[in-house]
């Protein structure tokens, strides 16, 4: 990061190649498989470059990168919520909100043995903050303090949110867990 802070572009490209999988994994789980993952990931690295001198005062680089990525993901989620659903052409004078045709039912997903898809479906059903703490803890191995640093929540709030995330996800996936064993 010292080289990057001094404007070393080659060093920055190596950094992108090293952390891109981590960023994509995080974004896929937070935004969902159909979210604007590549756009947000690119924006995250652009922001890292623009704020490269700010990093010097802080701790682990992964925490710094995750904080930027998480905040951008939250912004995208908020923007998506504000967007009205695309309306289909009028039918008998009534406009119909277009259903997201990409999302299958959990039964359809489980029936084809797509457990990764089922997990994605389940995670999408969690509130975004619960989803985030669960992803940081389970997939990235972050400690409570690290999750707290990335999300801005207190350690106590992280612990509580993690408990609720696991409880809720368990309830959501309970009906399908036996299908995995079939």
């Amino acid at each position: 990061m010292v080289d990057i802070a001094q404007g070393d572009q080659r060093a920055f490209q190596l950094l992108v190649e090293h952390y891109q999988a981590m960023v994509f994994g995080l974004l896929r789980r937070i935004l969902g498989p159909h979210g604007a993952i590549e756009d947000v990931a690119q924006e995250a690295f652009v922001r890292v470059w623009k704020n490269r001198e700010k990093y010097q005062a802080q701790g682990k680089f992964s925490t710094f990168l995750y904080r930027i990525t998480y905040n951008l993901a939250l912004n995208r989620i908020r923007d998506e919520k504000r967007k009205p659903l695309p309306m289909m052409p009028k039918f008998d004078g009534i406009e119909i909100a277009q259903r997201d045709l990409r999302s299958d039912t959990p039964e359809e997903i489980a029936s084809r043995g797509d457990w990764a898809g089922l997990i994605s479906w389940g995670l999408e059903r969690l509130p975004h903050n619960q989803r985030a703490v669960l992803v940081f803890q389970h997939y990235d191995g972050f400690s409570m303090e690290e999750i707290s640093s990335v999300t801005g929540l207190s350690s106590a709030a992280v612990k509580s949110m993690l408990y609720r995330a696991r409880t809720n996800l368990r309830e959501i996936l309970q009906p399908y867990k036996d299908s995995e064993n079939d």
Binding site: Q9, F12, Q20, A21, R28, E38, A116, I119, H138
Partner: peptide
């Protein structure tokens, strides 16, 4: 639950992503 979470596949990074970041910058 942990076993099920572990079955999630790693994300695929599109080829040329790093180059696209450098080009954008």
């Amino acid at each position: 639950l942990d076993k099920m979470l572990d079955s999630d596949a790693p994300a695929e990074v599109p080829e040329g992503f790093a180059e696209s970041v450098m080009s954008a910058l």
